[in-house]
Write a protein that binds this DNA or RNA. Structure first.
Lengths: 151, 151
DNA sequence: ACGAAATAATTGCGGGTGCAACCAAATATG
DNA sequence: CATATTTGGTTGCACCCGCAATTATTTCGT
């Protein structure tokens, strides 16, 4: 009759969770480091710029952008303030919904992504592609999506 | 001759990375939410307490604890301040190295973990065990560890 | 069509974080 | 043995974040 209160979850569950935390921390730390020292850009800033870059017309509603970047609307609002200040993004009010605002990637912003995406891709290639084959990456993605899907 | 500058990384790599960000955000958000509303505890606080709880004697050097909790030493130092203030942890100076300090889980702190670990485990079980079998969790862990291992 | 409820974005606020600087103590170097 | 270097921990600083409240606008319900 042991107490054994240390954890009721199966060790496989806890182990996978800890590894997820570790991999996330390591990847983000490395991305933030290299983006900062090579381009003076935080990963959070890069993330926002990349989502705009990858979108038809280079513009997105702020609420959509917040959802894509996995941050709150307030955080995104201030991030856009900062990116506007740097000249990489501009705001455009939505013509069909006067509450709404688009974030628009400027030409200078596009150039910034062109140069910094190289660093971004290099880190991901080095830390993911080089260590896990394409097939593994596919199953990894599928498993992780299971955690998010259906609520 | 297209520009195709949107991203040079293989889509499998970027996809897995995005899924990692998503799963991490979702898990942390849920854990933080439920730990807070059930026990008034942030995930960051719980994390620190759990590492102490899982250790022989319930004490760890601050530097070790920072490494385990994946935060900077300064962040951990302030976190311990807070946990000491709540009575869940106490500091003990290391007898063999007068620079060092142990964080020690108090009896009250142990009780706090006893009750809150239930919520923690429930979330992990619901979001991981119920959606991925033990075998999948094992391969998931192995893959994620590849990202961290060797530097 | 009109008031109620929902939605988009912003802002104040409290709080958390990492970096760099700092001090104290231990260890390495000559 | 003296001194330089490294290591453990704390603090000042600047910054970033989410929550809740606010304002403006749109949509829903009847």
């Amino acid at each position: 009759m042991q107490e054994c209160a240390s954890s009721k979850v199966k060790t496989a569950t806890l182990g996978a969770f800890r590894s997820l935390l570790g991999a996330h921390a390591r990847l983000l730390w490395q991305l933030d480091l290299e983006l900062n020292e090579s381009h003076g850009l935080s990963f959070a800033d890069f993330e926002v710029l990349l989502h705009l870059y990858a979108t038809e017309g280079g513009e997105l509603r702020l609420s959509e952008l917040a959802e894509l970047a996995l941050v709150s609307r307030s955080a995104l609002s201030r991030r856009i303030d900062s990116l506007v200040g740097q000249g990489w993004v501009s705001r455009r009010s939505c013509p069909t919904d006067r509450r709404g605002t688009f974030a628009v990637l400027t030409d200078i912003g596009r150039l910034k992504v062109d140069e910094s995406v190289v660093t971004h891709d290099a880190v991901l290639t080095r830390m993911l592609s080089k260590r896990l084959g394409d097939e593994d990456l596919g199953t990894l993605q599928k498993m992780l999506d299971e955690v998010v899907d259906r609520q």
